[in-house]
Deep mutational scan, measured.
Amino acid sequence: MIFPGATVRVTNVDDTYYRFEGLVQRVSDGKAAVLFENGNWDKLVTFRLSELEAVK
């Protein structure tokens, strides 16, 4: 189960963010908004829950 605050990895091989890890900001309607941070940039991207896996 994916909840806000969880760290997730993108599993969709066709996505630009494949294998990126980010922090879930919100979850609704089968989608999750994931925040990616890297140095001087932040990006908030929405994914279907089926495209994400929780990082242990």
Rank of each mutant, 00 (worst) to 15 (best):
33 A>W: 15
13 V>P: 15
4 P>Q: 07
11 T>P: 02
44 L>A: 07
8 V>T: 01
27 V>F: 04
12 N>P: 04
25 Q>G: 04
32 A>C: 07
53 E>S: 06
2 I>F: 07
27 V>S: 02
33 A>N: 07
4 P>V: 14
53 E>V: 10
1 M>Q: 12
49 L>E: 04
32 A>Q: 01
6 A>N: 07
14 D>S: 11
36 F>G: 02
4 P>Y: 05
55 V>K: 04
42 D>P: 13
27 V>C: 06
40 N>A: 11
27 V>K: 02
53 E>C: 08
6 A>D: 14
14 D>Y: 12
17 Y>R: 05
19 R>N: 15
12 N>W: 04
18 Y>F: 10
23 L>T: 14
5 G>V: 02
7 T>S: 07
2 I>R: 01
44 L>F: 06
12 N>V: 07
9 R>M: 09
43 K>Q: 11
38 N>W: 13
23 L>E: 08
10 V>N: 01
22 G>P: 00
13 V>L: 07
26 R>I: 12
3 F>E: 10
30 G>V: 04
47 F>V: 04
48 R>H: 14
38 N>H: 13
56 K>E: 13
48 R>W: 14
17 Y>W: 13
31 K>Y: 15
23 L>W: 07
52 L>R: 00
12 N>Q: 06
51 E>R: 02
54 A>W: 12
22 G>E: 01
18 Y>S: 03
36 F>P: 00
48 R>C: 11
16 T>G: 08
11 T>L: 07
33 A>Q: 14
10 V>G: 01
13 V>W: 06
24 V>T: 02
6 A>K: 05
25 Q>I: 15
50 S>G: 09
31 K>E: 11
5 G>Y: 04
27 V>R: 01
34 V>S: 03
23 L>Y: 07
22 G>L: 03
37 E>N: 13
32 A>P: 01
32 A>S: 01
4 P>C: 07
7 T>Y: 12
9 R>H: 05
15 D>G: 07
23 L>A: 06
31 K>F: 14
4 P>M: 07
45 V>C: 08
30 G>P: 02
29 D>G: 11
34 V>D: 00
20 F>N: 06
23 L>M: 09
4 P>H: 05
55 V>C: 06
33 A>P: 00
35 L>C: 07
3 F>D: 04
27 V>T: 04
51 E>T: 04
47 F>N: 01
